[in-house]
Design a protein around this nucleic acid. Sequence first.
RNA 1: GGUCCUAUCGUCUAAUGGUUAGGACGGCUUUCUUUCAAGAAGCAAACCCGGGUUCGAUUCCCGGUAGGACCGCCA
Length: 472
Amino acid sequence: MIRTRIAPSPTGNLHIGTARTALFNYLFAKKMGGRFIVRIEDTDIERSNKKFEKNIIEGLKWLGMGEDEGPLVGGDYGPYRQSERTKTYKPYIEKLLSESKAFYCFHSEKELAEEKENLMKSKKHPVHLCEYRNISLEEANILREAKNDYIIRFKNHVGRKITFNDLVRKDLSFDSDLIGDFSIAKRIDVPLYNFAVVVDDEIMEISHVIRGEDHISNTPKQLLLIEALGFKKPTYAHLPLILGSDRSKLSKRHGATSVDEYKDLGYLSESLFNFMALLGWNPGDDREILSKEELIESFSMEKVQKSGAIFDLNKLDWMNGEYIRRKSIAELAKLSQPFLKVKSKKYLEKILELEQSRIKKLSELPEKVDYFFKEPSADKDLLRWKNMTDEEIKSSIKKLLELLKENKEQDIKIIEKVFLEEAGKMGDRGRLLWPLRSALSGKKASAGPFEIISILGVEQSIKRLENALQSI
RNA sequence: GGUCCUAUCGUCUAAUGGUUAGGACGGCUUUCUUUCAAGAAGCAAACCCGGGUUCGAUUCCCGGUAGGACCGCCA
């Protein structure tokens, strides 16, 4: 059974990078008929926050990645929060300690920091080979009472090569000397990340560890622990990172980095899902717009890119526009609720019909359609088409009013026909139609005048034209 | 500083030991058009550098260069 997991730490909102990692875990698991698991890494109780945990899991769900197991939905391998698993880890730490595969280290943080600094100064790889690595447990117990400051480290072998096969990067190899005696637990019941993951992955029977390439250097440590504990090795896949416009790891200074922010900006979950999938992966053909099902169907690790990909807002905007245009008006109306408060559903839908092809994100809506809710302020220069004189504008509007009043009771199709005929007589249709549209919308850019009239109604349109006339 | 990773249009990417190096976004042009979009048509735009292997390298190998990630008693 293929089992993949995402392990967010609940110290902030759902980050785009985390979401993308989750996405690849999800696609892979679903493609292989496996299970997608959410495990919360909240070792450091102070930093963690239930609110963030909920937000992260809901964010994943919003994107379409419902978890098969996790802290909120449960499962047979729980608990799914690291903070609730301290009892699970303890025996494994004790085991390593009693087998002399781990030891107590009594160096202070200050000493360690100095050691590292000196090593780097002398151009050496910063690595801690601890002097306490061979002391007996008895000695350690005595020292522990004397100093209460200690940490548990893994006793690393020297001169070994650690190799593993990565699904994305093929053979990777690391020198054990450069890893040193790395830390595995703060105290006997407080494991550190590298230790906790290894134990959890074993117990939760995680078959594939799919994560960002920033974890590559953690892998040899975890492999060492797996070996020492006699665990089963999962298969690894390290994904290329998502980069900001300057090619460094995507972070706050690059702008919006959380899924929430994109949601609030009016991006649809489908476009974000689709877009992230195409960052560092392709389906092997020219398709760009793919549904979740198609993405799952065509997913394969072999197609995952090795180099990082810039998060290009331009393309996201385009894709979001594509998705907006593919929505039914009813769906779009529902999605627009948070952005546009309109009491009448019918009215909202009519407006959306006009804007569907004009917006790239839902947040553009309020500004684009405000004229449907309040009369525009009159501005004579806005009414001017090319180099019409004030008098010409005036006579155009008078003509418009006249025609509109005459055809008050007519269907909009008829009105349009009449107006177009009249505009045709003027040679340049803009001389009649531009003042019409701009008087109705109060904007340089908007939907067409007849579409607007059909929504506003003839009475309101006459009123706006009269207002416009006043301003000249 | 050390280790590891990576390298095709501005961006996301495809393909290939011999191609006019393909697609998409963005840009530009044209078209449609009262405006803005959307639509249609088109244009410009890339194989990091050097050496080797080879009849032939963008492709394979080596070196350089550049960029990135990591180097916690965070995860």
